[in-house]
Amino acid sequence: MDDGTSQYYFTASMDSGKTLHSLLKAIQFQESAVFCAMSEGLKLTVEEGKCVQASAYVPADNFTEYHVRDDVDVIFKISIAVLTECLNIFGASEESSLKMYYRSEGSPLLLVLQPQSVHTVMTDCEIATQTADCLLELRDEDATEVAKLVLKASAFLGLLADLERSCDVMELHLSPDHPNVSIVTYGMQDRSCIEVPKSSDMMQSFSCEQPVTLKYQLPHIRLIMKALAISSKVVLRCSSNGLLLLQLKLEKDEQRQMFSEFHIVPLLDDY
């Protein structure tokens, strides 16, 4: 496809759009996302009320073809709902190959999908793009990392699913002493506490020098559950300013990997 596509800002193609679809579905808690194509890979970012930032990151080696012009910034806003719907246009049972084109600033994102079983059918989708809003820069370079945990995603999902629904706040205690991780929730009258020692099978690595207690909005934490369901491993990092960073590795049999990433802002003590 060298017939003039080299002037395009961004072109990519991939054999199956299915994994991409499920990855985007996992961060689809907002209507629109910021689509950013870099030479290393593709990144879509969604923000929830300036408190949660979720990104889906697809490294360039997942694509059979990947080309980004390096003299321009390829960044625009797009409806993530429409994008996921287009990726799934032949239904969940059908594997379809995917090609993406983005000509220049202000032009629509072009998707060409072809189901693998039927070669005579092809779908052409044009999704309107908008100028991107600026994204939150949540990472603070001065803040140091105080704890890092590597957990099995399915077991961590089980823990989160078990938390009481009516609860708003979750307390996360991390400590070098036993129990290393404890999650406390306060219900109407009750207190529930989940303790996980670092010797647990679900904990693949644990590093924490100082005991730390952090509070988060439980609805924010719940946003990661969809992504956890499709992931195999989760890395949890706490920085000294309380920002929680979760990096999730997508479950995939092949060597190539996709990731999702969540930044969650802590609740500050009001006393």
Binding site: L159, D162, Q189, S192, I194, E195, D201
Partner: peptide, 22 residues
């Protein structure tokens, strides 16, 4: 004033529910 349910689960996880006695 609390009734305590302590579940010892797989993976060494301990879930404790402190339930208020009404």
């Amino acid at each position: 004033c609390k009734l305590i349910f302590q579940f010892k689960c797989k993976h060494g996880i301990v879930k404790t529910h402190y339930v208020s006695i009404l």
